[in-house]
Design a protein around this nucleic acid. Structure first.
Length: 233
DNA sequence: AAGGAGACCAACCGCGTCTCT
DNA sequence: TAGAGACGCGGTTGGTCTCCT
């Protein structure tokens, strides 16, 4: 059974398609009165010819008063990238870290901006900046280690084992990546890009390859459990 | 000005998990 | 403990808008 019913269609007694302002009003009043949850009771209590599923979705994605309208900011974009690298397509988990944003919004944003290796200019700059800063960080770290070794040799102290040095470096990189979203806060990613392809060294390309994997995580079909590690492992 | 392409977003669907009886 | 219903999540679709040629 299917027929025209206002803007949408009526199927199995349930209305489908775009919501009308009247329906929105009914649903909003219902939630104000009874709170969220028990979505299957909504149609009975309000007279709305919408399934519980449809009501929940409309409320969560559109009617909730705490929703943030407008475009995703560069800072939010960075957070999305970071968390997607960490959790994959767990949109609701990612959305929880972005107050006022829904999983649907995050998912749509990811698909239009990053799916199929189509990073925006902002992301290109973010990547370039990430790489540059990480390189600087590494150089600094190596210089420090060298200095430390020299001092230890002079004092005839035991030099740290190679593994210890590597672990220390990795720890520092992890801290850096976790702090990325905060470093970009309130900025327009105007940092000088080092992304010029002609200037890339082989090391550069290795890092870029890592980022490319991040953009195409979906395509890898990875089954990441709760203990899934961030991409840089 | 018109048409095509791509971006954006609301909404639906299917499936897995949770909760209650 | 098992089954049914409710709920939540990720994937997908389709309509509208915007920009470019």
């Amino acid at each position: 059974m299917e027929g025209q019913y206002g803007w949408g269609t009526l199927e199995d007694g349930w209305r489908k398609g775009p919501w009308t302002p009247q329906e929105d009003k009914l649903l909003t009043e219902h939630v104000k009165l009874h709170g969220e949850g028990r979505w299957n009771c909504v149609s009975r209590l309000t007279g709305l010819k919408r399934s519980g599923k449809s009501c929940r979705l409309r409320w969560v994605n559109y009617l909730r008063p705490d929703l943030k309208r407008g475009k995703i900011t560069p800072h939010e974009e960075t957070i999305i990238l970071e968390l997607h690298a960490k959790w994959g397509n767990r949109w609701s988990t990612i959305a929880r870290s972005l107050p006022g944003r829904t999983d649907n919004e995050v998912k749509n944003y990811w698909r239009t901006h990053f799916k199929k290796g189509k990073p925006t200019k902002n992301i290109e700059r973010a990547r370039a900046r990430f790489f540059k800063q990480q390189q600087e960080q590494k150089q600094k770290q190596q210089q420090q280690l060298l200095l430390q070794q020299q001092q230890q040799q002079q004092c005839q102290l035991e030099v740290p084992q190679f593994e210890e040095i590597v672990i220390a470096q990795e720890m520092q990189e992890m801290t850096y990546i976790y702090n990325m979203p905060y470093m970009f806060q309130g900025e327009e990613f105007t940092g000088n890009s080092t992304a010029s392809s002609d200037e890339k060294s082989s090391d550069d390309e290795a890092y870029y390859a890592t980022w490319e994997n991040l953009w195409n995580l979906d395509d890898l079909g990875l089954d990441m459990g709760d203990e899934a590690l961030p991409f840089y492992y």
